[in-house]
Computed example of a mutant assay.
Amino acid sequence: MMAFFCQFALLLSLSAAMSVSADIKLDCMPDFVRLVWTESKSQADLSLFRLGSCFPTSFSARDVVFNVAFNDCNFRRMVTGDQLMYTNDLTYISSDSRFLAYSHPVVCTFQRPDNWYPLIYEPVFNTYAFGDLVFHIGLMNDDFSGPATSTIFPLGSMIPIMASVAQRNHQPMLLFLEECVAADTLELQPESTVYPIITNKGCLVDSTISRSRFEPRKTSSELRLSLQAFRFALGEEVFIHCNLVAGEPNGLDDTKKACHYVKKHGWQLLDNSALSYICDCCDSSCKSRRTRSLASGKHEIFEKAVLGPLIITDQNS
């Protein structure tokens, strides 16, 4: 069993906007970690805590608990000398302006076992960071209340996908899926076989031939997609490659949109159906724009993400 070397957590000082007094306990075990956050005067919604990509294992009016393995939640592993270190981020994401989103590192350090060697293959993670921005995209359960319990989907069933972005000390950002394709490879290559899902700066083209749709937003910095499982690479690993764009929550236009096709009604704009004419270009070509970085002061960020692998099965074959 892995010898315990030391354990510690760099725990955050809460924003003054939260006005919360919290006690945090971290137990680093050989293969998993237990983190308990206890508030003496609860004001925040504790269900909005995340440890990496993981939702709380449980929570109450005063406590939020994570019991998770180091192989889950997008823990990062680093080996330096005789130390083996696992790091992650405890984050809080809220659309309530009284509670600022924040993120802070959680670290477990052990003595490196003599027989430990790095894996030849590391699974791809689906949380991405750019400065103080944290992007996430993941498979969800049917009502989007938690992560999916399976990555196998029968042909024709719905694949719930949620993307989100969090930034400290900033108002909620507006998130879009600009482009998404399914591929039979982890990395897109010229020889990769692909299936278009979202094209043309936010047009859910798959919705023209299926029941796929964007679901109503819960917050501006979150986007939910119900994708109908399609006939592509049946029985094999499928990876969904997406371009995510986050920016200020204003100025919808034909390059900053989420559009899906509604039978007998045509293209509909998710965020304001009265402006659905913005989606007219989905049948032709929507103008491109230069994506800007935080360094420019324009607060519009572009990020590539990969979701998967998942498997689509045909029960009739």
Rank of each mutant, 00 (worst) to 15 (best):
G251L: 11
A163V: 13
A163N: 09
L225K: 01
I161D: 08
G131P: 00
S221R: 08
E236I: 03
H241D: 09
L174H: 05
K201W: 02
K218F: 12
I152L: 12
Y128C: 07
K201V: 02
L223G: 08
L234R: 05
N250K: 14
M140N: 07
G247H: 00
K201S: 11
S226G: 09
S220L: 15
L133D: 11
V194E: 14
D254Q: 09
F230T: 13
L174G: 00
L175D: 04
V238K: 03
F153C: 03
S207R: 01
F135D: 08
P160C: 10
R213P: 01
Q171M: 10
V134M: 09
S221V: 05
Q228H: 04
I152F: 12
T151P: 00
R224Q: 12
G138T: 11
K201G: 00
N141W: 03
P216M: 05
S212W: 01
R224C: 08
R231L: 06
A148W: 02
D254N: 11
G202W: 03
E215N: 07
D143V: 09
A229W: 03
F230Y: 13
E191A: 15
C242M: 14
Q228P: 06
A233E: 14
L244Q: 01
L177E: 06
F239H: 13
R217C: 07
M140Q: 13
E237Y: 07
M162H: 01
C203R: 01
N141T: 05
M162A: 09
A183S: 15
G247M: 04
